[in-house]
């Protein structure tokens, strides 16, 4: 192919790309999205605050009261420090942490979302900060083993959020890296 032909084709492609159309957002969508964001953001923030500062035993009771039949215990990890459960990790050494969610009822189609701080990864999900699963909970204790890897010595908080039927709870797990 002649260079001149290539240049001409490139030019035509660029012109097509400039006009490559898009579909505008629906009328009133921005306002709706803004309203939903502030409402949902406030709800998530409130839920986080409710969970913060409660020990596992107290938290189970509080959540039972709030959700009615759907209660969760705090992660089954070593003794809490400042009311947030914590786990010690060694840099670049995988460690499995078992989270235990106790539910009063069996729950189908629950969503579990794990949010990781910078420098902490979940084995099998390199580079991902947030991982979600659709899951079902049986009545009683449900175990979730998470294999964590610390890539930097910073540490931070791992958040595990369980949602079902527009209700949910967020758990915090402090990760210290040495």
């Amino acid at each position: 192919m002649q260079k001149q032909d290539i240049n001409q084709q490139d030019q035509e492609i660029l012109e097509l790309l400039k006009d490559y159309p898009m579909t505008e957002a629906s009328a009133g969508y921005y306002d709706q999205a803004l309203a939903r964001a502030t409402h949902e953001g406030t709800r998530r923030q409130r839920n986080r605050w409710i969970m913060t500062g409660f020990g596992s035993a107290i938290a189970a009771g509080v959540v039972l009261w709030l959700l009615g039949g759907f209660f969760l215990t705090a992660p089954d990890v070593p003794a809490p420090k400042a009311n947030i459960p914590g786990v010690a990790m060694t840099l670049e050494e995988p460690r499995t942490v078992n989270l235990v969610f106790a539910s009063a009822n069996a729950l189908d189609d629950a969503t579990l979302t794990v949010t990781l701080p910078d420098g902490i990864e979940l084995a099998g999900f390199p580079g991902q900060r947030e991982i979600s699963w659709q899951t079902s909970l049986v009545e009683g204790k449900n175990y979730l083993p998470l294999e964590l890897i610390a890539l930097t010595p910073t540490g931070g908080e791992v958040l595990a959020r369980l949602e079902h039927d527009n209700r949910g709870r967020t758990f915090r797990l402090r990760v210290n890296v040495s």
């Binding site: 999205a33 803004l34 939903r36 964001a37 502030t38 949902e40 953001g41 406030t42 998530r44």
Partner: peptide, 8 residues
């Protein structure tokens, strides 16, 4: 939408 929720 997800961006706005996160940003808020």
């Amino acid at each position: 939408q997800e961006l706005l929720i996160k940003a808020f």
